[in-house]
Protein backbone atom coordinates (compact mmCIF):
# COMPACT_ATOMS: atom_id res chain seq x y z
CA UNK A 1 0.00 0.00 0.00
CA UNK A 2 2.72 2.37 0.96
CA UNK A 3 4.60 1.34 -2.13
CA UNK A 4 1.68 2.29 -4.27
CA UNK A 5 1.42 5.72 -2.67
CA UNK A 6 5.09 6.37 -3.07
CA UNK A 7 5.17 5.27 -6.66
CA UNK A 8 2.15 7.35 -7.41
CA UNK A 9 3.66 10.40 -5.73
CA UNK A 10 6.81 9.92 -7.72
CA UNK A 11 4.88 9.70 -10.94
CA UNK A 12 2.90 12.81 -10.09
CA UNK A 13 6.07 14.71 -9.38
CA UNK A 14 7.37 13.65 -12.76
CA UNK A 15 4.23 14.89 -14.45
CA UNK A 16 4.50 18.22 -12.67
CA UNK A 17 8.03 18.58 -13.87
CA UNK A 18 7.08 17.88 -17.45
CA UNK A 19 4.20 20.33 -17.26
CA UNK A 20 6.37 23.03 -15.79
CA UNK A 21 8.99 22.54 -18.43
CA UNK A 22 6.50 22.48 -21.27
CA UNK A 23 4.75 25.59 -20.05
CA UNK A 24 8.00 27.38 -19.51
CA UNK A 25 9.33 26.83 -22.96
CA UNK A 26 6.05 27.04 -24.81
CA UNK A 27 5.37 30.43 -23.35
CA UNK A 28 8.70 31.72 -24.41
CA UNK A 29 8.11 30.42 -27.89
CA UNK A 30 5.22 32.77 -28.30
CA UNK A 31 5.74 35.84 -30.36
CA UNK A 32 5.69 38.99 -28.35
CA UNK A 33 6.75 39.64 -24.84
CA UNK A 34 5.15 40.65 -21.57
CA UNK A 35 5.47 44.32 -22.15
CA UNK A 36 4.48 44.66 -25.72
CA UNK A 37 1.13 46.22 -25.05
CA UNK A 38 2.55 49.11 -23.20
CA UNK A 39 4.40 51.61 -25.24
CA UNK A 40 7.51 52.13 -23.31
CA UNK A 41 10.94 53.41 -23.76
CA UNK A 42 13.41 50.67 -24.75
CA UNK A 43 15.60 51.65 -21.81
CA UNK A 44 12.78 51.18 -19.38
CA UNK A 45 12.03 47.91 -21.06
CA UNK A 46 15.59 46.80 -20.48
CA UNK A 47 15.29 47.65 -16.84
CA UNK A 48 12.07 45.76 -16.56
CA UNK A 49 13.64 42.77 -18.19
CA UNK A 50 16.53 42.87 -15.80
CA UNK A 51 14.19 43.24 -12.89
CA UNK A 52 12.31 40.10 -13.75
CA UNK A 53 15.39 38.26 -14.84
CA UNK A 54 14.19 37.98 -18.40
CA UNK A 55 17.49 38.97 -19.84
CA UNK A 56 19.21 35.89 -18.60
CA UNK A 57 19.69 32.91 -20.90
CA UNK A 58 16.71 30.59 -20.97
CA UNK A 59 18.44 27.78 -19.15
CA UNK A 60 19.34 30.06 -16.31
CA UNK A 61 15.81 31.37 -16.07
CA UNK A 62 14.56 27.80 -15.99
CA UNK A 63 16.89 26.84 -13.18
CA UNK A 64 15.96 29.93 -11.21
CA UNK A 65 12.32 29.17 -11.67
CA UNK A 66 12.69 25.62 -10.46
CA UNK A 67 14.55 26.65 -7.35
CA UNK A 68 11.92 29.20 -6.54
CA UNK A 69 9.28 26.58 -7.17
CA UNK A 70 10.83 24.32 -4.59
CA UNK A 71 10.07 27.04 -2.10
CA UNK A 72 6.51 27.27 -3.39
CA UNK A 73 7.32 30.68 -4.72
CA UNK A 74 5.60 31.17 -8.01
CA UNK A 75 7.08 34.55 -8.67
CA UNK A 76 5.60 37.90 -9.37
CA UNK A 77 3.05 38.68 -11.96
CA UNK A 78 4.48 40.56 -14.88
CA UNK A 79 1.24 42.23 -15.70
CA UNK A 80 0.03 43.17 -12.26
CA UNK A 81 3.05 44.76 -10.68
CA UNK A 82 3.45 44.25 -7.00
CA UNK A 83 1.24 41.21 -6.81
CA UNK A 84 2.70 37.79 -6.56
CA UNK A 85 1.25 34.88 -8.38
CA UNK A 86 0.57 33.17 -5.09
CA UNK A 87 -1.52 36.13 -4.04
CA UNK A 88 -3.52 36.16 -7.21
CA UNK A 89 -4.23 32.48 -6.98
CA UNK A 90 -5.13 32.76 -3.33
CA UNK A 91 -7.64 35.46 -4.14
CA UNK A 92 -9.29 33.98 -7.15
CA UNK A 93 -9.28 30.28 -6.45
CA UNK A 94 -11.82 30.51 -3.61
CA UNK A 95 -14.24 32.11 -6.05
CA UNK A 96 -13.86 29.27 -8.48
CA UNK A 97 -14.11 26.75 -5.71
CA UNK A 98 -17.22 28.41 -4.32
CA UNK A 99 -18.90 27.54 -7.57
CA UNK A 100 -17.01 24.34 -8.21
CA UNK A 101 -17.59 22.50 -4.96
CA UNK A 102 -21.34 22.87 -4.90
CA UNK A 103 -21.46 22.00 -8.57
CA UNK A 104 -19.50 18.84 -7.90
CA UNK A 105 -21.72 17.87 -5.01
CA UNK A 106 -24.85 18.58 -6.97
CA UNK A 107 -23.64 16.67 -10.00
CA UNK A 108 -22.67 13.67 -7.90
CA UNK A 109 -25.92 13.62 -5.99
CA UNK A 110 -28.11 14.07 -9.06
CA UNK A 111 -26.05 11.70 -11.12
CA UNK A 112 -26.03 8.84 -8.68
CA UNK A 113 -29.71 9.16 -7.81
CA UNK A 114 -30.83 9.42 -11.38
CA UNK A 115 -28.54 6.62 -12.48
CA UNK A 116 -29.76 4.25 -9.78
CA UNK A 117 -33.41 5.00 -10.40
CA UNK A 118 -32.89 4.61 -14.09
CA UNK A 119 -31.27 1.22 -13.66
CA UNK A 120 -33.95 -0.06 -11.31
CA UNK A 121 -36.71 0.68 -13.79
CA UNK A 122 -34.65 -0.32 -16.76
CA UNK A 123 -36.54 -0.14 -20.05
CA UNK A 124 -39.62 1.32 -18.48
CA UNK A 125 -40.71 4.87 -18.61
CA UNK A 126 -38.62 6.31 -15.73
CA UNK A 127 -35.55 4.93 -17.44
CA UNK A 128 -36.40 6.43 -20.79
CA UNK A 129 -37.33 9.70 -19.19
CA UNK A 130 -34.12 10.01 -17.22
CA UNK A 131 -32.02 8.86 -20.13
CA UNK A 132 -33.60 11.43 -22.39
CA UNK A 133 -32.80 14.23 -19.99
CA UNK A 134 -29.32 12.92 -19.45
CA UNK A 135 -28.60 12.82 -23.17
CA UNK A 136 -29.96 16.31 -23.50
CA UNK A 137 -27.84 17.55 -20.62
CA UNK A 138 -24.86 15.97 -22.26
CA UNK A 139 -25.45 17.73 -25.52
CA UNK A 140 -26.14 21.26 -24.43
CA UNK A 141 -22.84 23.03 -24.00
CA UNK A 142 -22.57 24.96 -20.78
CA UNK A 143 -22.15 28.28 -22.47
CA UNK A 144 -25.49 27.74 -24.10
CA UNK A 145 -27.06 26.63 -20.90
CA UNK A 146 -25.63 29.48 -18.89
CA UNK A 147 -26.84 32.13 -21.24
CA UNK A 148 -30.20 30.44 -21.50
CA UNK A 149 -30.63 30.28 -17.77
CA UNK A 150 -29.70 33.93 -17.44
CA UNK A 151 -32.21 34.83 -20.07
CA UNK A 152 -35.04 32.96 -18.48
CA UNK A 153 -34.44 33.39 -14.80
CA UNK A 154 -32.62 36.64 -14.55
CA UNK A 155 -33.83 38.77 -17.36
CA UNK A 156 -37.36 37.61 -17.85
CA UNK A 157 -38.34 36.34 -14.47
CA UNK A 158 -36.00 38.42 -12.39
CA UNK A 159 -35.50 35.77 -9.75
CA UNK A 160 -31.75 35.70 -9.79
CA UNK A 161 -29.35 38.50 -10.49
CA UNK A 162 -27.79 38.57 -13.88
CA UNK A 163 -24.10 38.46 -13.16
CA UNK A 164 -22.85 39.32 -9.74
CA UNK A 165 -20.79 37.86 -7.04
CA UNK A 166 -22.02 39.03 -3.70
CA UNK A 167 -24.57 36.85 -2.07
CA UNK A 168 -24.92 33.07 -2.09
CA UNK A 169 -28.03 33.42 -4.22
CA UNK A 170 -25.90 34.79 -7.01
CA UNK A 171 -24.19 31.47 -7.25
CA UNK A 172 -27.28 29.42 -7.97
CA UNK A 173 -27.27 29.92 -11.70
CA UNK A 174 -23.53 29.39 -12.22
CA UNK A 175 -23.57 26.28 -10.07
CA UNK A 176 -26.51 24.92 -11.98
CA UNK A 177 -24.89 25.65 -15.30
CA UNK A 178 -21.69 23.99 -14.28
CA UNK A 179 -23.33 20.97 -12.74
CA UNK A 180 -25.63 19.83 -15.54
CA UNK A 181 -23.11 18.29 -17.89
CA UNK A 182 -21.22 16.27 -15.26
CA UNK A 183 -24.54 15.20 -13.78
CA UNK A 184 -25.55 13.84 -17.16
CA UNK A 185 -22.31 11.95 -17.58
CA UNK A 186 -22.44 10.50 -14.09
CA UNK A 187 -26.05 9.47 -14.59
CA UNK A 188 -25.16 7.49 -17.66
CA UNK A 189 -22.11 5.94 -16.07
CA UNK A 190 -23.91 4.83 -12.95
CA UNK A 191 -26.84 3.61 -14.96
CA UNK A 192 -24.68 1.38 -17.12
CA UNK A 193 -22.80 -0.02 -14.17
CA UNK A 194 -25.90 -0.57 -12.08
CA UNK A 195 -27.72 -2.35 -14.86
CA UNK A 196 -24.84 -4.71 -15.18
CA UNK A 197 -24.48 -5.24 -11.45
CA UNK A 198 -28.18 -5.87 -10.99
CA UNK A 199 -27.89 -8.91 -13.21
CA UNK A 200 -25.13 -10.50 -11.25
CA UNK A 201 -25.65 -13.69 -9.34
CA UNK A 202 -25.22 -12.18 -5.91
CA UNK A 203 -28.00 -9.70 -6.48
CA UNK A 204 -30.34 -12.40 -7.69
CA UNK A 205 -29.39 -14.51 -4.71
CA UNK A 206 -29.99 -11.63 -2.36
CA UNK A 207 -33.46 -11.16 -3.72
CA UNK A 208 -34.24 -14.84 -3.58
CA UNK A 209 -33.20 -14.81 0.03
CA UNK A 210 -35.94 -12.34 0.68
CA UNK A 211 -33.97 -9.15 1.19
CA UNK A 212 -35.92 -6.01 0.55
CA UNK A 213 -35.34 -4.07 -2.66
CA UNK A 214 -33.92 -1.01 -0.90
CA UNK A 215 -31.33 -3.06 0.92
CA UNK A 216 -30.41 -4.92 -2.22
CA UNK A 217 -29.93 -1.79 -4.26
CA UNK A 218 -28.19 0.37 -1.71
CA UNK A 219 -26.16 -2.10 0.27
CA UNK A 220 -25.37 -4.80 -2.24
CA UNK A 221 -25.56 -3.29 -5.68
CA UNK A 222 -24.45 0.33 -5.44
CA UNK A 223 -21.04 -0.20 -3.83
CA UNK A 224 -20.20 -2.48 -6.70
CA UNK A 225 -21.30 -0.01 -9.31
CA UNK A 226 -19.60 3.04 -7.88
CA UNK A 227 -15.90 2.41 -8.58
CA UNK A 228 -16.21 2.99 -12.31
CA UNK A 229 -17.92 6.32 -11.78
CA UNK A 230 -15.43 7.30 -9.12
CA UNK A 231 -12.51 6.93 -11.47
CA UNK A 232 -14.17 9.43 -13.72
CA UNK A 233 -14.81 11.87 -10.93
CA UNK A 234 -11.14 12.60 -10.36
CA UNK A 235 -10.43 14.71 -13.41
CA UNK A 236 -13.98 16.02 -13.24
CA UNK A 237 -13.49 17.37 -9.74
CA UNK A 238 -10.36 19.17 -10.81
CA UNK A 239 -12.11 20.77 -13.76
CA UNK A 240 -14.98 21.94 -11.64
CA UNK A 241 -12.90 23.20 -8.79
CA UNK A 242 -10.65 25.35 -10.84
CA UNK A 243 -13.58 26.93 -12.48
CA UNK A 244 -14.90 26.76 -15.95
CA UNK A 245 -13.67 29.69 -17.99
CA UNK A 246 -16.86 30.07 -19.84
CA UNK A 247 -19.11 30.01 -16.83
CA UNK A 248 -16.93 32.56 -15.10
CA UNK A 249 -16.99 34.72 -18.16
CA UNK A 250 -20.72 34.57 -18.63
CA UNK A 251 -21.49 35.25 -15.02
CA UNK A 252 -18.68 37.75 -14.50
CA UNK A 253 -17.11 35.86 -11.62
CA UNK A 254 -13.58 36.85 -10.62
CA UNK A 255 -12.29 33.32 -10.62
CA UNK A 256 -9.10 31.62 -11.61
CA UNK A 257 -10.16 30.78 -15.14
CA UNK A 258 -10.45 34.39 -16.20
CA UNK A 259 -6.91 35.12 -15.18
CA UNK A 260 -5.62 32.21 -17.15
CA UNK A 261 -6.86 33.31 -20.52
CA UNK A 262 -5.94 36.92 -20.10
CA UNK A 263 -2.50 36.08 -18.83
CA UNK A 264 -1.73 34.04 -21.91
CA UNK A 265 -2.77 36.92 -24.05
CA UNK A 266 -0.65 39.24 -21.92
CA UNK A 267 2.32 36.94 -22.10
CA UNK A 268 2.47 37.09 -18.34
CA UNK A 269 4.90 34.20 -18.09
CA UNK A 270 4.85 33.79 -14.35
CA UNK A 271 1.12 33.92 -13.97
CA UNK A 272 0.53 31.46 -16.75
CA UNK A 273 3.08 29.07 -15.37
CA UNK A 274 1.76 29.50 -11.87
CA UNK A 275 -1.83 28.80 -12.75
CA UNK A 276 -0.83 25.88 -14.92
CA UNK A 277 1.14 24.35 -12.11
CA UNK A 278 -1.63 24.95 -9.65
CA UNK A 279 -4.19 23.39 -11.91
CA UNK A 280 -2.05 20.37 -12.62
CA UNK A 281 -1.47 19.98 -8.93
CA UNK A 282 -5.18 19.98 -8.21
CA UNK A 283 -5.78 17.51 -11.02
CA UNK A 284 -3.15 15.12 -9.75
CA UNK A 285 -4.33 15.33 -6.18
CA UNK A 286 -7.96 14.78 -6.99
CA UNK A 287 -7.20 11.91 -9.35
CA UNK A 288 -5.07 10.36 -6.67
CA UNK A 289 -7.73 10.78 -4.01
CA UNK A 290 -10.49 9.35 -6.12
CA UNK A 291 -8.34 6.43 -7.16
CA UNK A 292 -7.65 5.76 -3.51
CA UNK A 293 -11.33 5.92 -2.80
CA UNK A 294 -12.15 3.44 -5.54
CA UNK A 295 -9.32 1.27 -4.32
CA UNK A 296 -10.65 1.21 -0.81
CA UNK A 297 -14.14 0.31 -1.91
CA UNK A 298 -12.90 -2.89 -3.45
CA UNK A 299 -12.19 -5.44 -0.72
CA UNK A 300 -10.17 -7.52 -3.08
CA UNK A 301 -7.49 -4.88 -3.14
CA UNK A 302 -7.49 -4.36 0.56
CA UNK A 303 -6.91 -7.90 1.67
CA UNK A 304 -4.33 -9.60 -0.41
CA UNK A 305 -4.22 -12.83 1.50
CA UNK A 306 -6.39 -15.72 0.48
CA UNK A 307 -7.53 -18.41 2.84
Amino acid sequence: MLGYVLRRAGFNLGVMLVVVTLTFFLMRLLPGDPFMSQRINPDIKENLYAKYGLDQPAARQYADYLTALARFDLGESLKYPGRTVNQIIAESFPVSAAVGFPALALAAFLGVTAGVLSAIWHNRWPDRFILAWATLGLSIPNFALGAGLIYIFALKLGIFPVAMYEKPLDLVLPVLTLAIWPAAVITRLIRTEMIEVLQRDYIISARVRGLGPAAVVLRHALPNALPAAIHYTGPLAATLLTGSFIVEKIFALPGLGQYYITSIGNRDYNLVAGITIFYTFILLVSTFLTDLLAFSLNPRCRYRNGS
Partner: peptide
Protein backbone atom coordinates in the same frame (compact mmCIF):
# COMPACT_ATOMS: atom_id res chain seq x y z
CA UNK B 1 -0.55 13.02 -21.24
CA UNK B 2 -3.72 11.96 -19.54
CA UNK B 3 -2.71 13.79 -16.43
CA UNK B 4 -1.94 17.02 -18.18
CA UNK B 5 -5.07 19.09 -18.22
CA UNK B 6 -6.24 18.98 -21.81
CA UNK B 7 -7.42 22.51 -22.12
CA UNK B 8 -3.98 23.71 -21.11
Amino acid sequence: FWCIPPFL
